[in-house]
Design a binder for these strands. Structure first.
Lengths: 188, 188
DNA sequence: CTCGTATTGGCACCAGGTATTAGAATGAGA
DNA sequence: TCTCATTCTAATACCTGGTGCCAATACGAG
């Protein structure tokens, strides 16, 4: 008995739907040259939900991630914040942050965490980075959890500039250090 | 004639669906206390597509954005690259890069472009940012196209460190300037 | 030839709609 | 008061993309 065709078809079907989850069963019949019932039995065996469920799942995922993705807003999760004094944030290095061959985080992600925190700790909503002097002390690697600690050194509420020092650690090793000068809307 | 209820309902309906696009017409009848036909007429007037279309649109959006987001690899498009000499990249400031209320780009995005370019121009694959001294000269705004130009000042092929200077312009105005020290795998 | 698996077909049913036509409620103006 | 327009509700037919179930067929192995 030629068992292969079925398994091959299952593989093909999985692959097709992975590439294009928008395919209906009817379209799949054309691509796999079997009846629509066969497609449905196959989906059943492979536990692949129907088109509408697939779309719903994707929509839910994107909806959730839009909500949890002010990734662009603040890089890292703020753990503690004392305005005009100090702040702590956590940022975990994942696949998309590293050079694929070395597993070392690209510098700008580590910088982004520190910069976000430096701006957040001032929290004047019109706080902008004016300049920074930074040092990458040792590379941060895939999977490592970076804890950034920011300290406002000279708030200079009137002067329109604040100096913020940020230290980033993995465990008790320092990986990054930076001095930021932040412009702020005077007052506050 | 009490015209308000209708417009109010339209507003409410828009708002409800904005908050939760997963609502069916039937669920909306419960929330708005009108018949399902009214809901459908309302959607028609407001040009709001049916549930399935909404889910499909969301799924498509998320599907596309996953595809077009190696944003994390190199920030900005490389326009020109002369290894160990110079490089140019283009980065357009869009919604997700700016503070929503001021339309000013967050510093780390501008930094990321410069940092990516500084590393790319060395292109030793084991090139890492060691330190940087940076200045944000004027804010970059939504829609602006940032052109970053990098110059390798001291390649020091043997020393394991290279100095790279980056200038970022919008038109002929400089918005950012940075001096990067890049570690490189000795030799080349 | 018979058994078992794989495949196909047909039918009823469902959710969540569209499209259309008809009727009821309401109020405003002549 | 009658009439008319707007708004709302109701009813029906139809569509897509399925599920669930049962029966019929194909086909190869023992």
């Amino acid at each position: 008995m030629e068992r292969l065709p079925k398994r091959q078809r299952h593989q093909q079907l999985s692959k097709l739907l992975e590439e294009n989850p928008f395919l209906t069963d009817r379209e799949l019949t054309r691509l796999l040259k079997v009846s629509i019932q066969t497609i449905r039995l196959d989906r059943l065996e492979l536990a692949i939900p129907e088109l509408r469920e697939r779309l719903k799942l994707m929509a839910e995922r994107s909806y959730d991630s839009v909500r949890s993705l002010p990734l662009h807003e603040v890089i890292g999760d703020i753990l503690d914040l004392q305005l005009d004094k100090s702040g702590i944030s956590l940022f975990e290095i994942s696949e998309e942050h590293v050079f694929s061959r070395s597993g070392i985080a690209r510098g700008h992600h580590v910088f982004a965490q520190a910069n976000s925190l430096a701006v957040a700790v001032i929290n004047d909503e019109i706080a902008l980075t004016a300049s920074a002097d930074i040092r990458f002390i040792r590379p941060a690697r895939l999977g490592e959890k970076c804890i950034a600690k920011a300290f406002v050194r000279s708030s200079g509420g009137q002067k329109g500039k604040a100096k913020v020092e940020v230290f980033t650690y993995v465990g008790d090793e320092m990986v990054f250090q930076g001095n930021f000068i932040i412009y702020r809307s005077a007052g506050e």
